[in-house]
Amino acid sequence: MNDFWIILTASLVAINASVLGVFLVLRKMSMMGDAISHAVLPGIVVAYYFSGDRTSPLMLLGAALTGLITAFLIDWLAKKVKIQGDASIGITYTLLFAVGMIMISGWFKGNVDIDLDCVLYGDIAMINLDKIIVDQNLYLGPRAFYVELVAGLIIFLFVILGFRGFKLLSFDEDYGLALGINMNFWHYLMMGLVSLVTVVSFEVVGAVLVIGFLIIPAATAQLITKRLIPMIFTACGFGIIAVLVGFYLANWMNVSITGAMIAVSGILFFKVMMINAMVSRKKLRVKMH
């Protein structure tokens, strides 16, 4: 039963991350996900300090807010101060992450029970320790699962309602501006959702590997799909396959579960890439004959 919950929760992480990852990959902003996932640390610490509770919605709010600040700071450095895009990402997220580290190791030491290792690497095997039990004995599953579920519902709601906005943002932002649409709104809405997904996922898969869930399935799907909606579903599919195969592989070899999931995801990418190249070469040969 524990295995079942772990797979289900990790699948939700994969789905939530893949949906947003598709847009990040198409916007060539993959590293933005990485930046946000690290930079939310001070937000998490501060929110935890005030709420004293890891389950508080204040945590989500604090982290989402820090995520937005990160996105804003990166934009501001790149556009107004005219620093190279990748350099502005590097400056912003390491600075914010460092502030978070200082908070954990010094200022809030004793008041904040956050383990840096846990933030960075997560621990998916432990999610079953934090259970939701109603009526004293009815076990509903781990808390992490429900957090992911709520995040997933929020993401799906926004992506369905704002699908055209996100599509325009990803394909041709300038054209959207020329149509008189407030593209900043869509950009920051997306960054807010990316913050949400990284925050709810960090204790499950960790801040380092969440970027793998965001980017790899989306990049794999881009190799073989020709339309946006199929690309989103295919990305989710690759994410779930990686979770399933990774989980059993990790159990069999007795290694890190998240590590195995991302490794499978990466290997899957290279497999699809090679098969894709072989198929197109074959097509070319058929055409030439």
Binding site: L26, R164, K167, S170, G176, G180, N182, L228, P230
Partner: peptide
């Protein structure tokens, strides 16, 4: 132009508005 969209999808963007 590698964006996963068809001709129809892109032309439809002309009908988007505030």
């Amino acid at each position: 132009w590698d964006f996963p969209a068809s001709v129809y999808d892109v032309v439809m963007m002309g009908r988007y508005g505030k």
